[in-house]
Design a protein around this nucleic acid. Sequence first.
DNA 1: CTGAGTGACATACGTGTTGTATGTCAATAC
DNA 2: GTATTGACATACAACACGTATGTCACTCAG
Lengths: 197, 197
Amino acid sequence: MATKRTQMMEMTRAKLIRTAREAFATKGYAAASMDDITAEAGLTRGALYHNFGGKKGLLQAVVDQIDAEMVARLMAAQQRAASPWEGLLEEGVAYIEMALEPEVQRIMLLDGPAVLGDPSQWPNQNACLLRTTQTIQALIDEGTVKPVDAEAAARLINGAALNAALWIAAADEPRAVLPKAVEAFRQLAAGLLQAER
Amino acid sequence: MATKRTQMMEMTRAKLIRTAREAFATKGYAAASMDDITAEAGLTRGALYHNFGGKKGLLQAVVDQIDAEMVARLMAAQQRAASPWEGLLEEGVAYIEMALEPEVQRIMLLDGPAVLGDPSQWPNQNACLLRTTQTIQALIDEGTVKPVDAEAAARLINGAALNAALWIAAADEPRAVLPKAVEAFRQLAAGLLQAER
DNA sequence: CTGAGTGACATACGTGTTGTATGTCAATAC
DNA sequence: GTATTGACATACAACACGTATGTCACTCAG
């Protein structure tokens, strides 16, 4: 049973995460001051330190939240696909599209790694990557994909999608280059396919 | 002809870049204080602001220096290869190997993008990427590679190599996963190859 | 019902860091 | 030989983070 106090605490945590997410996305982690964030949430730094241990802890919480949303969207994209192989491709495309959002870009792709270290160390990023790895392993087992190291392939696929997204986001006409990136991504990914006999 | 003053100035610039490069690589950009860097170089912050305009300017200078070194190494790797296609692969492998160095990782892959913005905006990173793009375009023209968008393909290739490098660097046994990553990279890149007739 | 205890959060303070404004001295120009 | 410029040092102000301490509401024995 949730007591009155823990309910309140959850609310303050949620409020801080929300305002921090906003501030980190727009101003960047370094330029976002804790005083501003807490004031915006109607609190002080005391609450922040009590709940998250510090500025990095708050960023970690924001990252975890966004990451959870991303995993959910990746799963949805994969399950929408007709075949496992198409599922992998759809997952890559979904990843590209998510990385177009300024919030994802700034927090997950720029500041997050710089402040918290390599994403492969984050508990949830592993979940996201693990999904791709498992998908690829399944494709290898069923003979669709060449017998390469599944984790290595997953890493490369994700990296390609990631960079494609960064490219698109920085482009003058994002909507114009998106299809080019998606097409090149599909071609590249086809390199993993078993040569048809 | 170089006057006495400009010679001195070049020396102080070089010294500051050297110590900053060291400090940024080991402690990270945020944790490296300008006082420490300048003191290590036997100077004060005055010199730093005069020559580089601020902390970001100093990082930019360090990034430019490292980037120039990387481009040189990429060119060397490509020219060592037997064929243009092998040149592209060698370039990717060289990129992976460079990203294994802590200095490159910390400064070029983590702090650089976070502080200076997306690498595609940097003047030199474009040179590095431009090389790959041109290589791919040449391969398309000669019929080795499928007719995809050359820049998109270059972006994806570089992104894959980049993430492979980050993965390797964060791994428990970097030397053990390196061959796996290289193998997967070659397979993936093969997706760009024109299907043999 | 009541008083001690605990937890959530606010307030106050010290330290370190950045950026700017001003000062100084050597090198060049006239 | 003096005036001026430019490279760098010093001094100062603003700010942000982290910690130490304080306060008040809620919980729970007795």
